[in-house]
């Protein structure tokens, strides 16, 4: 029983990062931009949040957790939005190939994260391992009373605030896309930019805003891993391949943020299943790590067979739009 509890807790902890990434990517893809730079943006968000908190804690002799939290959150949002801005400038304004720009952004972001993560202590004057325990304690703070309830509290209320933020964000995004005029416009831009343009929607502005906000959301996933999951330290390649998993999750969730909520926790569970399954040898462990991707492939096959209109990718996904190119 307690094993199962720990498994669920860890699965949700793994899933939060994926949920942030998937929500951001869904928002971006709904505007017709296929942002493959999500892994890089997660690195950029994570390391910039860590740097913000690190310099704050270094400058002040008695750091307040809440101020460190705000600073790291702002730094993370700013830098990851900047990553999205680079992407959207190249793809929307300069109409470059979206896949290539995304991969370049991933290379850049991973280098950015690992370089500053590995060098920041040296650059700041050799303090050894960077650790922002004060700020990360604010990220890891649990709900005071509710987390004391025996089983329910452990499963539902024993997480830092970013876990709840990710779920709320996904729900808000669903409502925004399905129920508001702006969301309808955004979907129109993704489906058929020429039609949207003819209807008087500013296509470039929608693409810019959706990509930048989506990147900022994805950056929060990196911040979560660094601050909450790793407890305010940096290890090389800290985020692993979570960015790619987030992009796979978008397909699994069929471009619907509400489905991404349970999808991300399912994915998180499948990713760490190999630790909890008893009696696995090294070879079967590696086989178990394949499961999330196999599930994605199965979902792809099933949805393409069912051919439902609602569960298709945006029609103009990956294509640049140029008004005079007709």
């Amino acid at each position: 029983m307690s094993m199962l509890l720990i498994f669920i807790q860890n699965a949700i902890g793994q899933g939060v990062c994926l949920l942030f990434g998937a929500s951001g990517e869904i928002m971006t893809e709904k505007s017709g931009n296929l942002n493959l730079g999500i892994p890089g943006i997660m690195y950029m968000g994570g390391i910039s949040g860590l740097m913000g908190a690190f310099f704050y804690e270094k400058a002040v002799s008695d750091p307040i957790p809440f101020v460190g939290l705000v600073i790291s959150l702002l730094a993370c949002l700013l830098v990851s939005a900047l990553g999205g801005l680079i992407y959207s400038f190249l793809t929307v304004t300069l109409r470059a190939n979206q896949n290539v720009v995304g991969l370049a952004l991933t290379t850049f972001g991973m280098g950015f994260g690992n370089f500053f993560g590995g060098s920041i202590s040296k650059l700041a004057g050799g303090v050894g391992q960077i650790s922002v325990a004060t700020t990360s304690s604010a990220y890891q703070a649990k709900l005071p009373l509710l987390s004391d309830i025996p089983v329910v509290g452990d499963v539902l209320f024993s997480y830092g605030f970013m876990t709840y933020l990710s779920v709320i964000l996904a729900i808000v995004l669903t409502v925004f896309l399905k129920r508001t005029r702006k969301g309808l416009n955004l979907r129109a831009v993704g489906e058929s930019p020429a039609t949207a343009d003819a209807a008087g929607i500013n296509v470039s502005r929608y693409k810019y805003v959706a990509t930048v906000l989506g990147s900022a959301t994805a950056g929060l996933g990196g911040l979560f891993i660094v601050m909450d999951y790793l407890g305010g330290t940096w290890t090389n390649d800290a985020l692993g391949d979570r960015g790619w998993l987030a992009i796979a999750l978008v397909i699994l969730a069929l471009w619907n943020p509400a489905r991404a909520i349970w999808g991300s926790f399912l994915f998180g569970g499948l990713c760490i299943l190999y630790i909890y399954l008893p009696g696995l040898t090294r070879e079967t462990q590696e086989l178990c790590k394949v499961i999330p991707y196999v599930v994605t492939i199965i979902v792809l096959v099933v949805t393409s067979k069912r051919n439902k209109l609602e569960s298709q990718p945006p029609v103009s996904l990956g294509e640049p739009y140029f008004r005079e190119d007709r």
Partner: peptide, 12 residues
């Protein structure tokens, strides 16, 4: 004593 990923930044 820095990290060796600087080349990735420049490549990007």
């Amino acid at each position: 004593g820095l990290n060796e990923n600087a080349s990735n930044i420049i490549t990007g």
